[in-house]
């Protein structure tokens, strides 16, 4: 089977002159949970935004051999994107926020209602249909943001440090729920994080990046079986993996 998406010699220099990403060659398999791990400012978001088609690489190319449709140019219904901030419409209820992509796509009302229902249940926000974003806690807002990404039934979920602003307990809970959804729905996830612990817990593959200009310097497979849960979090295996990945990250920063 061909990989879902490939990046070949992708680099990004911003008009300001900043070389954010130096040269990335990468193939992502369908169904994998890949983390991009690196220090802040190393170009993780830039890579994710290029994959999403929101910005163009200044050299190299991005292909989607694993998708039946043509390569994304700006619009891509098979992609879901979750930002670090919940990025909700403050004037709209939870249900209307989640419905946004369906309204844009012109999905019929009844069908849209059913899909919004489904998405709200998946993220565990039953009973908050009519709440407004400001009435929700940070963790709940992030759940709304994830539900909005799910409602289009994407095949690829791109997440840019989605839990970085949350407290640890909420983050652990969202990690578990995300993993459960991933196992159930079998999307491909590209997950940006600067946390070694989070990347090890979630992913089956970690791409370790150097400081700016960003390059992928190590490609680590995390073989621990799923489902992973709180027992995995306290296991020796997890501790060892975290130590290995931390070492890689240090090497990457020294390089």
């Amino acid at each position: 089977m061909p990989p879902l998406v490939t990046l070949s010699g992708v680099a990004k220099r911003f008009p300001s002159g900043t070389l954010a990403v130096e040269r990335v060659d990468l193939a992502i398999e369908a169904g994998s949970f890949v983390s991009l791990l690196g220090p802040s400012g190393c170009g993780k978001s830039t890579i994710l935004r290029m994959i999403a088609g929101l910005i163009e690489p200044s050299s190299g190319r991005i292909d989607w051999p694993g998708l039946t449709e043509a390569a994304p140019t700006g619009a891509h219904p098979e992609l879901g994107f979750v930002f670090q901030e919940p990025t909700l419409m403050p004037w709209a209820s939870v249900a209307d926020n989640i419905r946004l992509p369906l309204r844009v796509a012109g999905v019929a009302r009844a069908e849209a209602d059913a899909r919004v229902d489904e998405a709200i249940r998946m993220v565990g926000l039953e009973g908050f249909f009519r709440s407004f974003p400001r009435e929700l806690s940070g963790g709940m807002k992030m759940r709304v943001s994830i539900a909005r990404a799910l409602v289009t039934r994407p095949r690829v979920l791109l997440m840019d440090e989605p839990f970085a602003a949350l407290d640890e307990i909420t983050r652990f809970r969202l990690n578990n729920d995300l993993l459960a959804l991933w196992q159930q729905l079998r999307w491909t996830v590209v997950f940006v994080t600067h946390s070694v612990f989070e990347s090890v817990y979630l992913s089956n593959r970690i791409l370790v990046m150097s400081a700016r200009p960003g390059r992928i310097v190590e490609d680590i497979a995390i073989g621990a079986p799923y489902p992973r849960d709180d027992r995995f979090r306290v296991s020796d295996e997890y501790g060892n993996l975290c130590r290995d990945v931390s070492r890689s990250l240090h090497r990457a920063l020294a390089a």
């Binding site: 929101l54 700006g74 619009a75 891509h76 992609l79 990025t87 419409m89 946004l100 844009v104 796509a105």
Partner: peptide, 21 residues
Amino acid sequence: DHNLLDLMRLYGARRWQILWF
């Protein structure tokens, strides 16, 4: 919100949809 505008672009929103929504 620029991220919200990016998201609309990802959804393939038309200009009037971005304006109105």
